[in-house]
């Protein structure tokens, strides 16, 4: 094999031969589904506000409801179908965060409630919390130093 390709040449050859993702189609689908989920969120927020919930709480409550819906759709074996169609359109919204918590937990239930469900819940979502929270602490410290 080395006679005709070096490793680098082979990797490049494969890249050129491999079927490509249909990028435009995928982007359009992600835009539509992501947009619909967010519009749904706005709808919930508007409804809550109309019922007299203060703006801050309305946003929090919206997140809570969407997380609940995302978790439920995952359990009903629907979210993965949406994800197959929408890609980032259903990964990026907070419903996708719920999906990333529920899906490994469901999968590893056969390993028990503690080491299976409990531990595996955060296989994907764990890093999000680690980096999100750490970044917010750093941002907070910088803000503190700039202010005082």
């Amino acid at each position: 094999m080395k006679a005709i390709f070096t490793k680098d040449e082979y990797v490049r050859y494969v890249e050129q031969k491999a079927p490509k993702s249909k990028v435009m189609k995928n982007i359009l689908r992600a835009f539509l589904v992501g947009g619909v989920i967010c519009a749904g969120g706005q709808l919930i927020t508007n409804w809550l506000k109309a019922r007299g919930v203060p703006a801050e709480n309305a946003a929090n409550l919206t997140a809570l409801i969407l997380v609940c819906v995302g978790a439920l759709f995952t359990g009903l074996n629907i979210y993965d179908e949406i994800g197959r169609f929408a890609g980032a359109g259903s990964i990026v919204p907070i419903t996708g965060f719920a999906n990333s918590i529920v899906s490994p937990a469901m999968e590893f239930r056969s390993e028990g409630f503690i080491t299976g469900v409990g531990a595996r819940m955060f296989v994907i979502a764990g890093p999000v919390l680690v980096y999100g929270i750490s970044a917010s602490v750093i941002a907070g410290i910088i803000y503190y130093l700039l202010r005082f």
């Binding site: 491999a18 079927p19 490509k20 993702s21 995928n26 995952t74 359990g75 074996n77 979210y79 993965d80 179908e81 949406i82 994800g83 197959r84 929408a86 890609g87 259903s90 990964i91 996708g96 999906n99 990333s100 529920v102 899906s103 490994p104 469901m106 999968e107 590893f108 994907i124």
Partner: peptide
């Protein structure tokens, strides 16, 4: 899938390759 890739119910796309 469970061992090598992602949970079944994770909403991810499989690349064309």
């Amino acid at each position: 899938e469970k061992q090598f890739r992602f949970p079944l119910e994770l909403g991810s796309q499989r690349p064309p390759t």
